[in-house]
Amino acid sequence: MKVEPDQKVRINVKVNGVLHEAEVEPRKLLVDFLRDDLGLTGTKVGCDTTTCGACTILLDGRSVKSCTLLAVQAHGREITTIEGLSSDSKLSPVQEAFKDNFALQCGFCTAGMIVQATFLLSQKKDMTEEEIRDSIHGNICRCTGYQNIVNAIMDASRRMKA
């Protein structure tokens, strides 16, 4: 597809179960589409370079960093953001576990961290502490020192098996 300068592109994206049709500039980042166009500000921008993970979302069930994808790349695909993890105001096991384990302080990395943990637990239920640490090394937290986050993910794993 050839796109002229300033020309917009039509995309269809399902976000948290809702289909959105939108016209976007080809260069628009997915995270800006989610935050600025759809108003889903739960997903945060922490670094712009795919390093910090605050913008982590699920794209067709896989965790991706939405600051390093274009909105047009989400065309025809399904996205889950932090807002889509709890239904009927009931928290997911990961969300509950983060609360119960003091796994957040300032909260800015929390959405990305919870989405990443949700993805991990969808892939593998039993992870060692080392595996969990390794699997969240793309999500930076500056407040908690990670121990309570690791504990929360292990706790969530237990809750999901129960």
Binding site: Q95, K99, T110
Partner: peptide, 18 residues
Amino acid sequence: KRLYDDKFVTGRSTYVDD
């Protein structure tokens, strides 16, 4: 337990850019 964690774990927090 921290009193106001719900908004952070559900994406309803409001930082200045939000």
